[in-house]
């Protein structure tokens, strides 16, 4: 059999790659389950590299903040004494430390408020693609994390875990275009589906035409999607546009500042169900009768 002409090698390769991708996409779209093995393997490799890269960047930042930047300040302010520079630097470090402590305290407060079994995790990387809004956590399967576990910040819902490796996990943020959660307008108890717009905002769809919604209304999780527990704050209604009797678009501003996430709380397991109420025991004397 004649071998394919080497001049057309690129075309054959391109054709094979396109067909391979189409088959891969078809398999996932038809089964809705996807090839978890390939995805998990890719994710495990890349998140480990992301974690390492963030460690390097953190080191460089530490060196820059603590040494290079300080040298720059000294050069600009030669007349300032070294003591004053040291004190200022120390003050900055203290402030940064206080900021981190505040964040951790808020997380601990949240942990006490949520009845679920939880674990705290650090954000080690952002999204590797501008088309997806995700973060990588420094905890994974070893720490009990599993796909579809909800992730929270002290102010509200962050997203859900989509992929888990041994020591890292990828979280799909609620503002991602593929993300959705069952939501409810707290004031009017109107239910709908909250979806990510991909631009940092959310929208709520599938609302009743008679629903009453106003700007500033708080949107919380409805608890009917089997992922997010009921009553967690998602955001506030920013803009309501009506087209006749129906809602054209309801834009929600999330309460979580997704660009400033450093530590988050992962909900591992729901609280144990309350024991069923026992019928009141009759008094001993009555029982004897």
């Amino acid at each position: 059999m004649a071998l394919p002409d080497t001049r057309h090698r690129a075309r054959y390769l391109f054709g094979a790659v396109v067909v391979g991708h189409i088959l891969l996409i078809s398999a996932q779209v038809s089964s809705r389950s996807g090839p978890p093995l390939l995805q998990a393997a890719l994710m495990a490799t890349l998140t480990t590299a992301q974690d390492a890269a963030w460690t390097v960047v953190g080191g460089v930042r530490t060196v820059w903040d603590g040494y290079a930047y300080l040298r720059g300040v000294e050069a600009e302010n030669e007349r300032l004494s070294r003591d004053i520079v040291d004190l200022r630097l120390r003050l900055q470090q203290e402030r940064a430390s206080a900021g981190t402590t505040d964040q951790l305290r808020a997380l601990v407060d949240l942990r006490a408020r949520v009845p679920w079994t939880t674990t705290g995790a650090e954000v080690v990387a952002g999204s590797a693609s501008p088309d997806f809004r995700s973060i990588t956590l420094n905890k994974g399967r070893q720490d009990g994390l599993q796909p579809d576990m909800p992730v929270l910040a002290p102010s509200g819902v962050v997203g859900r875990i989509v992929l888990v490796a041994a020591s890292t996990a990828s979280v799909q943020l609620l503002i991602d275009r593929n993300a959705a959660a069952a939501g409810v307008i707290e004031r009017s108890r109107t239910q709908g589906i909250v979806l990510g717009n991909g631009d940092g905002t959310l929208r709520i769809e599938y609302l009743s035409a008679t629903a009453e919604i106003q700007s500033g209304d708080t949107v919380v999780t409805a608890g009917t999607d089997r992922i997010y527990p009921k009553g967690l704050v998602i955001g506030r209604v920013e803009r309501v546009e009506r087209n006749g009797p129906t809602y054209r678009s309801v834009v929600i501003k999330p309460v979580v500042d997704f660009s400033a996430l450093e530590t988050v709380l992962v909900l591992l397991a729901p609280p144990p169900p309350a024991p069923p109420a026992m019928p009141a025991k009759p008094a001993e004397g009555q029982a004897a009768k």
Binding site: A10, F14, V17, V18, H21, I22, L24, I25, Q28, V29, G34, P35, L38, Q39, L42, M43, L46, T47, Q50, S127, A128, S129, D131, F132, R133, S134, T136, V162, L163, S170, Q172, D176, N178
Partner: peptide, 23 residues
């Protein structure tokens, strides 16, 4: 494929887009 895997999207859509773009 790496971006699809890390972002939690449908594996292959980003791969196809970038392959065609690269070609």
């Amino acid at each position: 494929l790496a971006q699809d895997a890390l972002g939690g999207g449908v594996l292959g859509i980003g791969g196809l887009a970038k392959s065609v773009s690269g070609y």
